[in-house]
């Protein structure tokens, strides 16, 4: 290879067929879908790859250093798991992990169930369906800044609507925000309110793509309405529920924005403090960059741990 002339001479000596072969293959390759589609997917793919996976990789790298403060950059020569050890021994990390986990699971589950229920109700032909659909979707269109303040008023212990309503049943008043036992539930409820409409729309789209004859076949087969949904219809909504679950989890992590809007600061009541708020505090209030990066990695792993079994199951079932 060091002498290009050798190569040329060599190939000539062997004869034309191999060169032709090679050329044909090159031409074929250049005409293949892979090459021809290259400009279309490569740019977004590389931007996403760099932005997402590069970001994740870099974050993980930072978390292995001792990077903090403004004066020194991260020192990559001495990587260790010190930050993770510190995190495991930090009670605040445990508290926020627990809250994050509860938020992820409870919010996603209830929102999906509620969304499914609403979608089935709508699909069964309630009148004014379009209007109702809009009403349910509306909260999602609102900014967290608006809904957080809205729910602060709703949860006001003296004159909030929530206490007025539970008061009708002789309960309360409850200190929804002030009581550390209740505040996480209150936040989750507000988020469910905001996103059940989204879950509903996803499920409704799924339901409407199921042909009527599936319902009719089940009916002729003698299945009750409940059994029809349970055994025939809902199992066919798997791809909808995967979509809904993934997006809702993203929204669950967006609870950061909601909390920030609600309490006006990164430090939120302990009962509802999550890994994301803790991470931002460590990074931007205290400049503990490496520690914040370690918390971010923990958050990432947690999100993966929650969703991975579900996705794996769906993949096995052939829904993905």
């Amino acid at each position: 290879m060091s002498n290009p002339q050798d190569t040329v001479a060599g190939s000539q000596a062997v004869g034309g067929t191999e060169t032709d072969d090679w050329r044909t293959r090159l031409v074929e390759f250049s005409k293949s879908d892979f090459v021809r589609s290259f400009p279309f997917w490569f740019v977004p793919f590389s931007i996403m790859g760099l932005g997402v996976y590069g970001g994740i990789g870099y974050n993980t790298l930072i978390s292995l250093t001792d990077y903090e403060g403004f004066n020194e950059g991260p020192d990559y020569t001495n990587l260790d798991l010190g930050m993770y050890v510190q995190a495991v021994n930090d009670p605040w990390v445990w508290t926020t992990s627990k809250n994050t986990f509860v938020l992820l699971i409870v919010f996603t589950t209830i929102t999906m169930l509620l969304g499914l229920f609403l979608a089935i109700m709508l699909d069964r032909g309630i009148r004014y369906r379009e209007k109702i659909q809009t009403i349910y979707l509306l909260p999602m269109a609102l900014s967290f800044v608006v809904t957080a303040q809205f729910w602060l008023w709703m949860y006001n212990v003296n004159n909030g609507l929530v206490n007025t309503v539970v008061g009708l049943f002789g309960l309360g008043p409850y200190n929804w925000i002030g009581d550390p036992q209740l505040v996480l539930g209150s936040v989750i409820f507000a988020l469910i309110w905001q996103f059940s409409g989204y879950a509903m729309v996803v499920f409704l789209a799924g339901l409407q793509s199921i042909p009527d004859d599936q319902f009719e076949a089940a009916k002729v087969d003698g299945a009750s309405v409940f059994k029809t949904y349970w055994r025939v219809i809902i199992p066919q909504l798997k791809s909808s529920s995967v979509s809904a679950a993934v997006v809702l989890m993203i929204f669950a992590l967006k609870a950061f924005t909601f909390l920030f809007s609600m309490f006006g600061q990164y430090r939120v009541p302990k009962g509802t403090d999550i890994l994301a708020t803790l991470m931002v505090r460590e990074a931007f209030k205290l400049q503990n960059w490496a520690y914040a990066a370690a918390i971010a990695t923990i958050l990432l792993l947690m999100a993966l741990a929650v969703i991975a079994p579900y996705l794996h199951y769906q993949h096995k079932q052939g829904s993905l």
């Binding site: 042909p211 004859d213 076949a217 002729v220 087969d221 003698g222 299945a223 199992p235 066919q236 079932q317």
Partner: peptide, 28 residues
């Protein structure tokens, strides 16, 4: 006490053939 074959067959896509055929018996 009727059974019907649909134009589109309306088979349940998530069930096996066995499941499809057994469904009516299980339910009725």
């Amino acid at each position: 006490d009727i059974a019907m074959v649909f134009q589109s067959y309306a088979l349940y896509p998530h069930m096996t053939v066995r499941g499809n055929m057994a469904f009516g018996l299980e339910e009725s």
